[in-house]
Design a protein around this nucleic acid. Structure first.
Lengths: 167, 167
DNA sequence: TTTAACTTTCAATAATTTTTGAAAGTTTAG
DNA sequence: CTAAACTTTCAAAAATTATTGAAAGTTAAA
């Protein structure tokens, strides 16, 4: 496997993985490209490398910036804008943890809390609904606590702590 | 909020959450419905409750069974098949952990391993590709180890261990 | 200013994913 | 066996999501 093959393979894999954690393919591919690029890239560069349109590139870059894992940057003597990604994998993991907690788990917790707090009318089905959503609430709370812990720690806490668990 | 509202709210929320971890809405909704139902349900029951077609119900039930979180069951004196979900949240978490590792992380690890093993031709961009994919490989390996640990433990290990972490 | 370089927006289009429903398949009672 | 009850399959249709590209918007050099 040469450089170009390896690069394409990485960008593709990262692209399809993205859809699984809720960001779309183009967005994940742009991130992948920037992540392995030693230099910041312009919009033209990205469009050309990934064969996607200007509009698509612009919109997805914006989302990556919203997520906080891509930054705008300027290059001396150049009029146009350049983009670079967060290069620290630990920081990347922390950002993802933070955003997933905020976007997914917390709204779910809110609903689960409301649902498991309905009045118990004594029927079997109501009891079951309350019981099961309460259990899910506990589980989701634990998951959320972990994500927030990960999100708030210094750079290598994740690996160190998780490694202890794995032993 | 009465029983019906709470139930709909739960099914909807669980349905949209599903799309985020890679299973589709109908599949997640069927799971939600079975999860809070005190009795096994027939295909008719599910179709009627969720307003989805017979074909859709059949296909999604099959997938849930493949995932290992829904079981076929029979009801005395009834010809047709009934379905019930795994009721233990810990077991549910373990199944999800196992399946996510198998379906997503392990294939990714394989690609990352290949990519970061390309020959270093000395160029800056090759060095960067190798370095960054190696870092991602470590991170993903750690995540995978955790998931497998979760997937292989007895019922309440997850909560207990995670709780230690959170303290 | 003005104008060229560049970016964003968004309606239209394309691609993908989900859903349907009816035909084919399977199972079991009689 | 046959027929009725039930389930699965899958091509077509619908719904959803992603992408394009050109017009509108912005910025900064001159």
């Amino acid at each position: 496997m040469n450089y170009q093959e390896a690069k394409d393979s990485f960008i593709n894999t990262w692209g399809s993985l993205g859809t699984l954690w809720g960001i779309n393919k183009a967005m994940a591919q742009i991130h992948a490209l920037l992540f392995i690029s030693p230099e910041p890239l312009s919009m033209e560069d990205i469009m050309e490398e990934l064969h996607i349109s200007r509009g698509n590139t612009s919109m997805n870059l914006r989302q990556l910036i919203d997520w906080g894992i891509v930054y705008k940057t300027s290059v001396a003597g150049e009029r146009k804008e350049f983009f670079k990604s967060e290069k620290d994998v630990q920081e990347l993991a922390r950002t993802v943890a933070r955003e997933r907690s905020r976007r997914e788990i917390q709204p779910t917790l809110k609903v689960l809390k409301d649902v498991c707090s309905i009045e118990d009318d004594g029927s079997v089905k109501t009891k079951e609904l309350i019981k099961k959503t309460k259990e899910l609430y506990e589980l989701a709370s634990t998951a959320d606590a972990i994500l927030n812990r990960i999100a708030s720690q210094e750079s290598n806490w994740v690996t160190k702590t998780l490694m202890k668990l794995v032993k």
